[in-house]
Each structure stands twice: as C-alpha cells, then as structure tokens.
Amino acid sequence: MESMLQGEYISVLDAKTKHEFEAHVVRFAQGLGFRTVTAMAVIDHVLGEPEFHCVDNGPAAYDALASDPANGKRDPVMQHCKHKSVPIIWNQATYVVAGEGNKWEEQAQYGYRCGIGLAMHLPKGRHFFLGVDRDQALPACPSEITRMTAALQLYAAYAQEASTHVLLPSVAPQETVALTPRELETLRWAMEGKTAWEVGRILGIAEDTVARHAHSAARKLGCSSKLHAVVKALRLGLIQ
C-alpha cells in the first residue's frame, strides 16, 4: 500500500479538472483506509464572508447538514483546524469533551464516526483543509496512527498545490519565482529526504544557514512549509 500512496502524492498534481482532483483525493483516502474525504480551499476576505471551494465523496443525504454554516461553528474538528496547523485525530470523545455529543450523533449516522483532519494556513488569507473519515474505529496501535497522519500531512502539500489550480483558477497566478542557487540546492536535497544537518554537511555550510535558505525559498514561493515549497518548486519546474 505504501508504494501506491507514494504514487498518489505526485499524480494529484496532474489533475486538470475538479472531477479529476476529486478522483485523486478519494483514491488516496481509500488507499489509506478511509471511506470518505473532504478537500477544501478557503479564501478569507477583509469585507464579506469567506469563499469555500470543496470536493468530497460523502453521502448526498449529508450535504444539507455539511453545508450549513452553523455546522462548522459547532464542529470541534473544524474549529481546531481553523486556528491550528497541527493535525487532529478525532472520535466521539472529541465531540463529547467539546459539549457537542449531539453533533457527533448527527453525523455518525452518515458514517462520520472518527478520522484525521488538518489545515494549511497560507499567505494572503488562503487556507486548505484535508480530512479523512470512516465509520470504523481507528487502529489501536499508536505507530499505525502516526503512519496514517504522516501520510496525510505529506499528501496535503501536494493536494493543496493542485487545488490552487483546480478549485481556485481565478486566483492562481502565473508565477515567475527567482530562487538563488543555494535555495534551489536546499530544496533539491530536501526532496531527497535530507535533514538540514545533512544538507549542511553536503553543501559545506551551517545547519542554521540551510534553514534560512529553506525559509527564504518558502517565503518567495508563498508556501507554509519547506515540504510545501518543495512541491511547488517541482510543479514550477524549478527542481527535478
């Protein structure tokens, strides 16, 4: 299953339509062991309500409840993701502790009993949410939960980049980004899975200097993390 998931990371960047994008994220979620998935791009506006652009494969009967603005305000998972970038692993207890046990009962009948969700908070008031859900309990083994969460975090960087051009074509600029040779080298080695310490040894520079190059590259690319910067640089053809 791991090799299949890894193939999905890059292939989602090839999605040209909303339908293709949805097919990619659904296939990834189901390969990870979850029945349903939601991928949502959000744009905040200084004046007016935020924009929501979403794909999901949830049951049609759940659409009315899911699209109700009050639903998100009650949902402790969405409230967590609204303010934090740390993934949340949730189940019935998450809702009970938040005083929203009834909310969990409402959604559980549609198969939303537990899952993992995370958000990426980007420059210029843009956000990306990715959540996977199922009606069976999550694995009892902590290492398996860690593996699932790590896979979701990695995939989110690719899915967010794809969503910019599929769900938000009107705001996706034709980027021309100039990175320095050191910034490009840093991203290339990061793509190979090297740590900042290892890259520093390879390039003959300090670990802190590597981190500064990575941070500078991410800022120029408008990305929220080094991983996201690697994905965007790949899509733009800046690294191979």
Rank of each mutant, 00 (worst) to 15 (best):
V37G: 07
T38P: 00
A39Y: 02
A39F: 06
M40Y: 02
A41R: 13
D44I: 04
E49K: 10
E49Y: 11
E51H: 01
F52M: 06
C54I: 14
G58N: 09
A66P: 00
S67A: 10
D68P: 02
P69A: 03
G72N: 13
D75A: 02
P76R: 10
P76D: 04
Q79T: 06
C81F: 00
V86S: 13
V86L: 11
V86W: 06
I88D: 09
I89H: 03
I89C: 09
I89G: 08
Y95L: 06
Y95G: 07
Y95N: 05
V96A: 11
V96K: 05
W104Y: 03
Y110R: 08
G111W: 05
C114G: 03
G115C: 08
G117R: 05
P123R: 06
P123A: 05
K124I: 01
F128M: 10
F129N: 11
L130T: 02
R134G: 15
D135H: 11
D135C: 02
Q136Y: 05
Q136L: 12
A137N: 12
A137R: 11
A140D: 14
A140P: 00
A140N: 07
C141A: 14
P142R: 09
E144Q: 15
A150I: 05
L152F: 03
L154R: 14
E161D: 12
S163G: 15
V166L: 00
L167R: 00
